[in-house]
C-alpha cells in the first residue's frame, strides 16, 4: 500500500511544499462516467466593468454552479454579478489557426487613427 521511497526526485514544484515530480501518474484524460459537467465562470468586478473569465468548476446544474461560483470566486467581494456557462457550449477559435484566422486584420493599417498624417497645428484631431 505505502510505496517505498524510490520516486526519484523531489522538487519544490508543488507550490505549497515539495512534491515528487517523477514516478507519479498523471491521469488518462478520460472524463469519469457520470461526472458533473464543467462550467466556466465569469465575474463582473463592479458596475461599469465587463464580466471577466476567472476559472471553472463542476456542478450538477447551472443553479448549483452559480452558488458554488459565489463561494469559490467571490469570497472577498470580488464581484457584483456572475455568469456560468457550460464549457461544452463555448465555441472557440483554434490556436493552430491563429495566423490565418486573424490575418485579415493584420494588413489594414488604415483602420488605426495613427495611419493618417494631420498637420500638427490642426487642433482636436
Amino acid at each position: 500500500m505505502i510505496p517505498s521511497s524510490d520516486e526519484g526526485e523531489y522538487t519544490a514544484e508543488g507550490g505549497h511544499g515539495a512534491v515528487p515530480t517523477q514516478g507519479v501518474e498523471t491521469g488518462s484524460g478520460t472524463p469519469r462516467r457520470g461526472s458533473w459537467p464543467l462550467y466556466e465562470v465569469f465575474v463582473r468586478g463592479k458596475r461599469g466593468l465587463n464580466h471577466v473569465h476567472v476559472g471553472s468548476l463542476h456542478a450538477p446544474d447551472a443553479e448549483m454552479a452559480l452558488h458554488n461560483a459565489r463561494d469559490l470566486y467571490t469570497r472577498r467581494n470580488e464581484g457584483v454579478s456572475i455568469w456560468v456557462v457550460k464549457a461544452d457550449d463555448i465555441t472557440a477559435s483554434s490556436p493552430g489557426e491563429k495566423d490565418p484566422f486573424f490575418a485579415p486584420a493584420a494588413d489594414k493599417v488604415y483602420r488605426h487613427p495613427t495611419f493618417y498624417a494631420i498637420p500638427e497645428e490642426v487642433p482636436h484631431l
Binding site: 514544484e13 508543488g14 507550490g15 512534491v19 515528487p20 515530480t21 507519479v24 498523471t26 491521469g27
Partner: peptide, 8 residues
C-alpha cells in the same frame, strides 16, 4: 505541469 498542479 499536471504533476505539479495536481499535487499542489
Amino acid at each position: 505541469l499536471i504533476r505539479q498542479i495536481a499535487q499542489h
